[in-house]
Write a protein that binds this DNA or RNA. Structure first.
Length: 720
DNA sequence: ATGGACAATGTTTTT
DNA sequence: CATTGTCCAT
C-alpha cells in the first residue's frame, strides 16, 4: 500500500518533505497527527531510516500512544526501536541513563505539584518567611518560570527585594530536592537541556543518534524544550515541527508560541507548509471559529475550509444560572440520546474552570446518567491513592523524606511530630537521610542515642524501619503489583481506608484501581510505574471507548474531537476569565481557548450563557461573554430567556431582599429531588423547577421516557 | 498523639 | 459555601 494514499497535496508535501528543518502550520482538524505518523512511516519505509534514529515527542501520553498505534499500523510492526514519548518522560529516561554526569542518582523520584508545594512550605517555614507575603504557590511559579528559562538559583536575576528572597528560597528548595533525590517537572527539562549544553560528548552522542526529530504541538514548547530540541537536532538538522499558534493556550505554564517565530529565525532555510483543509467540522462551525479568532491581532492569516458542507447552525442558549445550565445540558443530552441523535460517548461538555464541573456532575448523578470526568487530579490526587504511591516512592527511594513523612504514621502507629523531629535531627547528625537511619535503626540498635527517646517511641520507629527493610529486600525482585500487596498487607491499610462507611468503600475502590494499573507492569522495579504515575496528563484519563458524555476543562479538550460539544459558562469573568481583563496578552489567550473549544465540535455546537453567577454563596448578575458578540448572527440559533424575567433579575438585589423577606408571588410546589406522578408517563424525578409568568416550569426525568419540561398548571402532576 | 471544633481563606488553566 | 488549616481538649 502506498502510504500517501488519502493525503491532500499539502499533507503529502509535508510527509515527503526533504531533509532539513520543516515547519508545518496545521489548523485544527487538518490531520496533523496523520501527517506526523505518515512522515515517520515514510522515513522508515521509503527513505529507509532506522527507527532507532527517529525521535518523536508529544505533550501527553495519550497523544504518544495514539501516534505509536498508528505508526505500527502503517508499518506492519516495523517500528521497533522508535523513540516516541512525551517530553517529560523522554527526558526522565535520558536523565536516568546519564545520571553519572549529574548531581543526582539515577533512581530519582519525580515530585508532582503537590510534593512541590509541601516542600516549598517547608522551605518558607525553615527560612522564617511570612507565608502571607511569600505565598508558596507564587514563589513556586517564579521558580518554575526561572527553570523554564534554564536558570538555576545562582543565575536568578535580582531586581527587587522580593527577587532576593526568592533567590534564597529557590536555592534552598533546589538543595532539598537534591537531598531527597528528587526532581520536579521543570527539572526534567532543565537538567536535560543543561546536560546537553554543558557536556559536548553527551550532546554529540544523542545528536548523532537522532537523525530525525519530530515534534507535535510545537506552539506549546517552552524555552527549555526549544533549546533541548536545538541541541538534539544540532548534528543532522532534520527537525520537523507541527503546531498552530492559534491553539496556544499554555503560556501561563511557560509555553512560548514565539518559538514558532524563533524557529523560522533560527532555521531560515526551513520549509513552511500550511494545512488549512479541515476534516472535522462543518463549515458553519469553522466560520464561527474563524470569526472568533480573527479578532486577535498579529495573526498569520489562515482560512479554514471543509468539504463537509454548511451543516446546522450552532445553538446559543441563555439560562438563569449554573443550576439551570446544568439541567439544560443534562436534559438536552438525555433527549439527544433518547431520540437516537447521538450516542452518549459522542458528547462532551467543556468549561473554563474545574469548579464548574460540580454542578454538572450533580445534575448527571441526579438524572442517573453516567458521565466521564476527564482529569488526572480527580484520581491521582485522591488522598488514599497518593498515600499508597508515597509508600512505593519511599521503597523506590528511601531518601525521599517527603514520602516518608507522609506514610511513617499511616495508619496511625504512634509516631507523631515529636518522635519524627528527633529522628530527623539524629539523621542529620549522622549525615544520612531519615529513611536511611530508620533502616539502620532496625538493624543495629546502637546507632541511635537511646536516651533521646522513650523506649516506646524507639520501638515504633524500629518496627517501621524493619518493615521498610523487608520491602527493600524484595524490591528488585518484585513487580509493582507484588510490592503494593506487601505494603497493603503489612501495614493494614485496608482496614484504615475501608472503614465500613460508603466513602471508605469508594476509597478502597480507588486503591484497587491503582492496583489494577500496577498489574500492567510485569518487570520488577518501580521506576517505570512511578514515572508514569508522576507524568500522567489529564487527557490520559479519558478512555476512548467509554460510552458516556465527557466533562472536561477547555484546556483538557485540546487535541480531542466530538460530534456534539457543549461549551458552558459563557459569561464575562468566567470565559474570558476575570484575571485576563487587565492583560491584553492574557485576553488573547482566553480567546484562543474559546477557539480551541469551538473547533472540537464536528457536527453540533451548543453555547450556554448564564445570566447569573453563583459565587461564595451569592448569586450576582453577569454579562454574557464578550466573545459571543463576534459570532455573526446568521450562524447562530438563539434561544434566550423571556425579557420580562430578565428585567426582574438583572437588577442587583439588596441584601435584605435576598435574605428571603421578599417572597416570590407564587410559591414553587415542586422542588428538585421530589418524585411526581404523571397520568401518561408515570413516575418521574423533578430535576429543576422555577417560577415564570405566574406559572411553575418543572423539568422532570421519567424513566423510559426521558426529560420533559412541563408547565405545572397544564400537566396534571401529583406529588408522590 | 490524636481527633474534633472553629476560623480564615479563597476560584484559572496543568506536564 | 466549601475546603483547608490551626488551635485546643481529650
Amino acid at each position: 500500500m502506498n502510504s500517501l494514499d488519502g493525503l491532500n497535496p499539502q499533507q503529502q508535501q509535508a510527509v515527503t518533505a526533504g531533509f532539513g528543518p520543516v515547519l508545518v502550520l496545521a489548523g485544527p482538524g487538518s490531520g496533523k497527527t496523520r501527517v506526523l505518523t505518515h512522515r515517520i512511516a515514510y522515513l522508515i519505509k521509503t527513505l529507509e531510516v532506522s527507527p532507532y534514529q527517529i525521535l518523536a515527542v508529544t505533550f501527553t501520553n495519550k497523544a504518544a500512544r495514539e501516534m505509536e498505534r498508528r505508526v505500527v499500523e502503517l508499518l506492519d510492526n516495523q517500528a521497533e526501536g522508535l523513540t516516541l514519548g512525551t517530553f517529560h518522560a523522554t527526558c526522565a529516561r535520558l536523565l536516568r541513563r546519564e545520571a553519572e554526569h549529574l548531581p543526582f542518582k539515577s533512581d530519582f523520584v519525580i515530585f508532582d505539584s503537590d510534593d512541590q508545594l509541601r516542600l516549598m512550605k517547608q522551605v518558607i517555614q525553615e527560612l522564617g518567611l511570612d507565608p502571607k507575603s511569600y505565598q508558596p504557590q507564587s514563589v513556586l511559579s517564579s521558580i518554575s518560570n526561572a527553570k523554564n528559562e534554564l536558570l538555576l538559583p545562582e543565575d536568578y536575576p535580582v531586581q527587587h527585594y522580593r527577587d532576593e528572597v526568592v533567590k534564597r528560597v529557590f536555592s534552598r528548595y533546589q538543595q532539598l530536592l537534591l537531598t531527597n533525590n528528587a526532581l520536579d517537572f521543570d527539572d526534567l527539562l532543565l537538567w536535560t537541556a543543561r546536560l546537553l549544553d554543558e557536556n559536548p560528548q553527551v550532546r554529540e552522542r544523542y545528536a548523532r543518534r537522532f537523525e530525525h526529530i519530530l515534534v507535535d504541538e510545537f506552539q506549546d514548547t517552552n524555552l527549555a524544550q526549544y533549546r533541548l530540541l536545538r541541541y538534539l537536532a544540532s548534528f543532522h538538522n532534520n527537525i520537523f515541527v507541527v503546531g498552530d499558534t492559534d491553539q496556544s493556550i499554555y503560556t501561563w505554564r511557560g509555553a512560548d508560541y514565539r518559538n514558532v517565530l524563533r524557529f523560522e529565525r533560527d532555521y531560515p532555510d526551513a520549509q513552511v507548509i500550511l494545512l488549512e483543509q479541515n476534516y472535522r467540522s462543518t463549515q458553519t462551525i469553522l466560520d464561527v471559529a474563524m470569526a472568533v479568532i480573527d479578532q486577535n491581532p498579529h495573526r498569520r492569516p489562515k482560512k479554514l475550509f471543509t468539504s463537509r458542507g454548511k451543516g446546522e447552525k450552532i445553538i446559543l442558549r441563555e439560562v438563569y444560572d449554573d443550576r439551570e445550565e446544568a439541567a439544560f445540558v443534562v436534559e438536552t443530552i438525555a433527549g439527544l440520546v433518547a431520540n437516537g441523535h447521538a450516542r452518549p460517548g459522542d458528547i462532551a461538555v467543556m468549561y473554563r474552570t474545574n469548579a464548574q464541573s460540580r454542578m454538572l456532575e450533580e445534575a448527571f448523578l441526579f438524572a442517573k446518567i453516567p458521565y466521564k470526568l476527564v482529569g488526572a487530579q480527580r484520581f491521582y490526587g485522591r488522598r488514599e491513592v497518593k498515600d499508597v504511591i508515597a509508600f512505593l516512592r519511599l521503597i523506590h527511594n528511601p531518601d525521599d523524606e517527603l514520602s516518608l513523612l507522609r506514610v511513617i504514621n499511616l495508619p496511625p502507629r504512634g509516631i507523631g511530630e515529636k518522635t519524627y523531629s528527633t529522628l530527623r535531627l539524629e539523621a542529620k547528625r549522622h549525615g544520612i537521610s531519615p529513611g536511611q537511619l530508620l533502616i539502620e535503626l532496625s538493624r543495629a540498635r546502637e546507632s541511635f542515642s537511646r536516651d533521646l527517646l522513650l523506649e516506646r517511641a524507639y520501638q515504633r520507629l524500629a518496627s517501621f524501619g524493619s518493615m521498610l527493610l523487608k520491602w527493600l529486600a524484595w524490591r528488585d525482585r518484585s513487580t509493582p503489583l507484588e510490592i503494593i500487596d506487601f505494603v497493603l498487607e503489612d501495614t493494614g491499610l485496608r482496614e484504615f481506608i475501608d472503614d465500613g462507611t460508603e466513602e471508605g468503600k469508594d476509597r478502597w475502590e480507588n486503591v484497587m484501581e491503582l492496583r489494577r494499573l500496577a498489574s500492567e507492569y510485569h518487570e520488577p522495579g518501580l521506576a517505570d510505574f512511578l514515572d508514569q504515575l508522576a507524568l500522567v496528563s489529564d487527557q490520559d484519563t479519558l478512555e476512548v471507548s467509554n460510552n458516556a458524555p465527557a466533562l472536561m476543562t477547555l484546556h483538557a479538550a485540546k487535541g480531542l474531537e466530538f460530534p456534539i460539544v457543549f461549551i458552558v459558562g459563557l459569561s464575562d469573568g468566567v470565559l474570558p476569565h476575570q484575571r485576563s481583563f487587565e492583560d491584553e496578552e492574557a485576553m488573547q489567550e482566553e480567546r484562543r481557548l474559546f477557539y480551541v473549544g469551538i473547533t472540537r465540535a464536528k457536527d453540533r455546537l451548543y453555547l450556554v450563557t448564564p445570566l447569573h453567577r453563583n459565587a461564595f454563596g451569592y448569586s450576582e448578575p453577569v454579562k454574557e461573554s464578550r466573545f459571543l458578540a463576534d459570532i455573526p448572527s446568521g450562524l447562530i440559533l438563539e434561544n434566550r430567556r423571556e425579557r420580562r424575567y430578565d428585567r426582574m433579575t438583572e437588577r442587583s438585589l439588596s441584601p435584605w431582599e435576598t435574605s428571603g423577606i421578599v417572597k416570590p408571588a407564587t410559591q414553587a410546589k415542586y422542588s428538585p429531588g421530589v418524585t411526581v406522578l404523571h397520568p401518561v408517563w408515570g413516575e418521574g424525578l423533578v430535576l429543576n423547577s422555577r417560577l415564570q409568568d405566574d406559572d411553575e416550569i418543572v423539568d422532570v426525568f421519567f424513566v423510559g421516557v426521558g426529560l420533559k419540561r412541563l408547565a405545572a398548571s397544564l400537566a396534571r402532576l401529583e406529588l408522590k
